[in-house]
Structures are given as C-alpha cells and as structure tokens.
Write a protein that binds this DNA or RNA. Sequence first.
DNA 1: CCAGATTGCGCAATATTCTTTCGCATCTGC
DNA 2: GCAGATGCGAAAGAATATTGCGCAATCTGG
Lengths: 166, 166
Amino acid sequence: MPGAKLDPIDRKILAELQADGRMTNVELAKRVGISAPPCLRRVRTLEESGFISGYHARVNERELGFEVQVFAMVGLHSQAEVDLSAFEQRCRDWPLVRECHMLNGEIDFILKCVAPDLSTFQRFLTEELTAAENVASVKTSLVIRCAKDEPGVPFDVLEDRYARLG
Amino acid sequence: MPGAKLDPIDRKILAELQADGRMTNVELAKRVGISAPPCLRRVRTLEESGFISGYHARVNERELGFEVQVFAMVGLHSQAEVDLSAFEQRCRDWPLVRECHMLNGEIDFILKCVAPDLSTFQRFLTEELTAAENVASVKTSLVIRCAKDEPGVPFDVLEDRYARLG
DNA sequence: CCAGATTGCGCAATATTCTTTCGCATCTGC
DNA sequence: GCAGATGCGAAAGAATATTGCGCAATCTGG
C-alpha cells in the first residue's frame, strides 16, 4: 500500500517542497502547521525513506543555449532483457538524452533529447542513435512549444483519494 | 546569443544547483571558487534573469501512489492557433497531465500523464481526453520502466561548446 | 597614457535559520 | 490503568544568509 505511512502533514510537506524546493524550514513549518524541529525531522525522514529523491534547480533550457528539444520513438530488433538493458545503458551514457522510458505497444522506448542546435541533434541522431546496435527504427518529433511542464505529481488528486477512501 | 552574459562561474553555479538545489550558499561558493556573498548575488541575479526558473523537490511517484505513467500522442482536427491554444488550456486544467508539448509531424501533441491506477487513467482517457473537443486521435503507451530521468540540460555539452567556440 | 566610472570581489558584522537537546503530552497495547 | 513508543514544542548554540563597505581590476573616453 504505497504512501500508507504518510499522514496529511507529510503529504503537505511533499506538496510544498515540490512547489518550492528552497523554502526555508521555518516557512515550511509555518505552512504545514507545526513547529520547525518536528518539521525538519519529517523532511529528513522523507528524504531517507526515498519519498524525496532530490532537489533540483530548474534552468531555462532555451536561454542557456539548448534551442532544440526532441522526442524520439525507438523500436528495437530484440526485446530480450539483455538487449533492452544494453540500450538503456547506452541512453544513460548519451548526455543529449535526458529521459528514457520503456513503453508497451509497438514503440519500445521514448527518449526526450535536448541539443544546442539542429545540426548537433542530427549528428547525434544519425551517427549515434540510429547507428546503435539493435536499433530497428527511430521516429523523431521536434518540440514546437511547451504548453505545460509541471514537476512531479498532482497532490490534489492524492488528497481527494484519501478523503474518499479514508 | 543565448547565455552570452554568463561566465564560467555562472555556468558552474547553474550546474551545481541543477544537481542539488538545496545546497547551502557557502558550499556552493566553495565549489565554484568564490566567497559566499558574491556567490549569493550571482544566484539572485540568475533567478531574476530567468536562468533559474524555480526549485523543486523530486518526489517518488510510485511510492506515493501514482503507479501509472502514460505517454499520450494526440492528433487534432484543426490546427488553427485558436484551437491549439484551447487544447493547451485544457491540458493545463487537467491535473493528471503533467507535461504537454506541441510537436511537428503527424502527432500534434505529446502528453505525459500520471494516475494512481489504470482505471483512473482509463476514465480520464475516455471521458476527458478522447472526448474533448477537436481531438481526432489519441494513442497511449504505458511506461513499463524508466531507465533515465535527468533534470534540465547537460552542462558538459555546453562547456565543450564554449571551449571550442571561445 | 591616464583620470573617472563601472564592475565584482572579499572582509566583517548582523540577522536569520538550522539543528540538537530535553521535557511533556498523547496514543497504543497489554 | 500503566509502561513503552511516538511526536510535539521550547530553548540554546552552531551554522548560514544577508547587508554594508572598502578595495582592486577592467573599461571608457579623453
């Protein structure tokens, strides 16, 4: 039963830190309605138990010079576990690949890639990704614009469920 | 020229905060090789200029009870700007949709969705997404497993480019 | 080549926050 | 009831954030 050990205060802490990861502990404590020391203890517990896996600054990719974002749908020849793992390891080694998800259906993997410009991406696509062992097909789609990019999960939905189910 | 105003110290700051958004300012200053006050001033400037758009705790989705992650490829009937915007606004209103990217090619949008369970997602898919105005086709793929999920951009690539181009 | 302006650093002092310790209340199972 | 466990909050000391200021290096326009 996932999340069973979390009380409403813990979930509020997670929601607040997901929205603002640099909030001071005193501010966080004020928002969740307890004093600072127990609040900090809860945060540490959440970190150690893996509910919080890290904190990250979100940087403006375009402004930093990464003008190109691409989704790549990849099909493999072999779906044997050893071959899947080998491809995943290759993705982890490619810095331009930021995300790699294994999917069901006809597509085996979806990759989210970034690059400074189109030619850099094209070079990666033709010389690395398409050329990689066991890769059968690659279909790419350029991101025209991003309408929504929310981190993490919708805690509202979670609270609704807890309210309904107990 | 994006990122032109950033010197190597600024880029190092961004890289460090992207990797660990809760690093203390003194630790950050130590790592980038300057003292704390100017380091904090740089961080504030980076925040105000939009290079840093926010800080977020990354939460463990599965452990929190969001067992299902899905990529949805959406095609629309009309690609007129007003219709595109209307669909994007709908995506922003759906809490289960975490990301919404407009793409080139035959697929108009790719959506990253989360849900507590399959039936919740199926209900959203049939009653909300597929049923939405102007939606022509929806193809969904369940995420089996995630091999890589790195936030932001690869600063190594950026440094290589700066080293090569000046 | 040289004032004057600008920029950015580091030191020092203050304010805020973090973190630990400890005592107390509440809950739980027997 | 009652012992043990759990979790809270107050207080104090340590670490950190933040501000003000003087100084050096780099530009800029004579």
